[in-house]
Computed example of a mutant assay.
Amino acid sequence: MPFRGPGRPRAAGLDERVVAAALELIDAELPVTAGRLVERSGVSRAAIYRRWPSLADLVAAALDRGREPLEIPIDGDLRSAIFESFLGGAERQPSTYSDERMRQRLRLALADRALQRAYWDAHVSRRRVATLTALRAGIDRGVLRDDLDVEACVDLLGGVFYYQLVVRGVPMTDADALARCRAAFDVVWRGMAAGSA
């Protein structure tokens, strides 16, 4: 029999009802408050706070709903796999994760540092693991420099794509944006490649 921690067992479906209520509020551009969540979900305030330590944590979970985990195959051409992972994440958002949801995530996180931190801790930092793993595989194979700061490289590579989406405001389906990303990625890759120091 599996171990159950202290406290009451979780009732099936409560988490989903609360997250769905939070998304309704977010999509309606209404503030996510405990009172509104209770009213829309039918879940008590105490039950909500038993599941999420803060409303920022709950909103972060809601904003990530519908996003697919990032996977990068490391057994083939790492350069292409890493490039496609960034492109694929921007280009193939599932239908449950709309462009408007992404824009709401950016607006809300930039307006609320606690939410920005919660989203980073619970979701972004985990999504980076696949890229970090792929870069480390490149170092192990001798494809990439062994003195790379892989955390900084993930920031740099991510910035190439986010700049197009967030600053320029163009999708990755735009041919010019794709060409800019490819050119910038090539510059970064040459700097990371073994023998480039």
Rank of each mutant, 00 (worst) to 15 (best):
E100S: 15
I26K: 08
V167P: 02
A20P: 03
S54M: 09
R180S: 12
S98Q: 10
D112I: 06
L87E: 06
D149S: 12
G35A: 14
L110Y: 07
L106N: 04
A184P: 10
Y119C: 01
I48E: 03
F83A: 03
L108R: 05
I139N: 02
G13M: 07
A109M: 14
G42Y: 13
D27N: 14
G195S: 02
C153F: 05
A47G: 10
Q93Y: 06
R113M: 03
A111G: 02
E151C: 01
C153I: 08
E100H: 14
A114Y: 03
R126H: 05
T133G: 02
A81H: 00
L106Y: 03
F83H: 11
G66L: 04
V160Q: 06
R101W: 04
D77M: 01
R65T: 09
R50K: 11
E151L: 05
I82E: 00
R67G: 03
L178T: 11
R45S: 12
G13K: 10
R107Y: 07
S196E: 00
D186F: 11
R50W: 07
D174Y: 09
F83D: 01
P94Y: 06
Q164C: 08
A152P: 00
R17C: 04
R65E: 08
S80T: 15
A177K: 03
R141C: 04
V19H: 01
G159N: 11
Y49C: 08
P2W: 10
D176G: 13
M192W: 08
C153H: 10
T33D: 04
T131K: 00
R36Y: 06
G158D: 14
A194M: 12
V154E: 00
A194S: 13
V160S: 09
I139H: 02
D176L: 14
A28K: 15
V187I: 14
G13S: 08
E39T: 14
A194W: 10
R117F: 11
G35I: 09
R79K: 14
R117D: 13
P69I: 00
D121T: 01
R145E: 03
S125N: 04
R180T: 12
L37G: 03
L70E: 02
R190W: 05
A134S: 05
A34N: 10
A34D: 07
A175E: 14
